[in-house]
Design a protein around this nucleic acid. Structure first.
Length: 103
DNA sequence: ATTATGACCCGAT
DNA sequence: AATCGGGCCATAA
């Protein structure tokens, strides 16, 4: 098993289509290790280019919002998601509708 | 090289 | 349903 790296995570995250969201667990799984969800979050934190990596389209597996160290943090994240056309209910995203297929 | 941390997840209570 | 605790990953210091 080859350990996953940030580059792998960024490569996947930047492939998330507009109007869709992904979860740390989902990305970790696509990266090759479903248990690296934590490392994925760290990668987003160390996100080199928010314009390339749609870190704001990444939420927790239960659809809840978490982290984000931008301007207003979570608030900015929600604003951006809404701009993408994604609905936020009680600070949570409807994964049943917006969960990224992974392709 | 080792320790500690963090934008997590899951099972148990 | 909500809360608590423990476990895993890769990286930063």
């Amino acid at each position: 098993m080859e350990k996953i790296s940030f580059s792998k995570i960024y490569n996947i995250a930047k492939n998330i289509p507009k109007g869709k969201v992904s979860t740390y667990k989902q990305i970790a799984t696509l990266a090759g290790n479903p248990r690296a969800s934590r490392a994925v979050g760290m990668a987003m934190k160390h996100n080199p280019d928010t314009t390339i990596v749609a870190c704001h389209r990444v939420v927790s597996s239960n659809g809840d919002m978490c982290g984000y160290s931008g301007g207003k943090g979570i608030v900015s994240k929600i604003e951006k998601l809404r701009e993408e056309g994604i609905e936020i209910n009680n600070g949570k995203v409807d994964l049943k509708k917006y969960m990224w297929d992974g392709k």
